[in-house]
Write a protein that binds this DNA or RNA. Structure first.
Lengths: 117, 117
DNA sequence: TGGCTATTTTTCTATATTGCCAAATATACA
DNA sequence: TGTATATTTGGCAATATAGAAAAATAGCCA
């Protein structure tokens, strides 16, 4: 069955997919603040350097980051900072869901703790 | 090694991950235009209805869509239409990359066809 | 009740992703 | 040249995902 949708959906989805991992999202935010080399990021993240390198290559292949070699290190930077604008909306989704959960709980008479700020 | 980043990254990433599939991206856009039932979407997409149902459950679990049963069908609708705002930025990323590719080609003396609009 | 329609769940297979280790590569520099 | 540093690659095991078919569930209506 499985039919091919317009290739535009593939292209867009691959960027979102690249962003859809906690470590890569962290990297994106970090690169928004300032460019960083692999080593910097590895220390912040606490995974093996090879793991971080692979995450960076996913981001690079999706076109989200650029790399530039300077001195002994390779510096990565965010290609299109507009992706950071997504975060507000993501928080809206999360907040909406939290409220939804609370309503369900309330209408079942379940006491809920005050929401975590 | 693998260390736990702030759970906020997990939460945000899971939404992006849910969006990171061509079929689900199509569904999101379609639901932005108007609510739809599973059957409607299945016809548009051309996959098995069970596959579409599963994609919808991914979207539902991530909090992106809501469902409501009316009559014999279940209607899905977009929960936070702000996710549609992502598209402009995604196109920017794609465009930036296309230009990058063209520059590489040019500086190697490769003739490229005029860009597809 | 029985059959119809709409949807979800289960089960299966194939494929992709993640994360670590070890090894390879690249580069600076003494 | 040799050594240290920075990064990537290949390999592997564990886990997750996608898609289809079949079975299960739910509501409707004759």
């Amino acid at each position: 069955m499985e039919q091919k949708l317009h290739p535009q959906y593939e292209a867009r989805a691959s960027i979102l997919k690249a962003m859809g991992h906690p470590t890569r999202l962290f990297i994106i935010e970090e690169l928004h603040k300032s460019e960083r080399c692999v080593n910097d990021l590895t220390e912040m993240i606490g995974s093996d350097v090879s793991t971080v390198s692979k995450h960076l290559s996913v981001l690079k292949n999706s076109g989200l980051v650029l790399d530039e070699k300077r001195g002994t290190s390779i510096y990565y930077r965010l290609c299109c900072p507009c992706v950071l604008d997504f975060i507000g909306c993501l928080e809206t989704v999360l907040k909406t869901n939290a409220e939804k959960q609370m309503n369900i709980a309330q209408c079942c008479g379940i006491k809920t703790a005050s929401p975590v700020r």
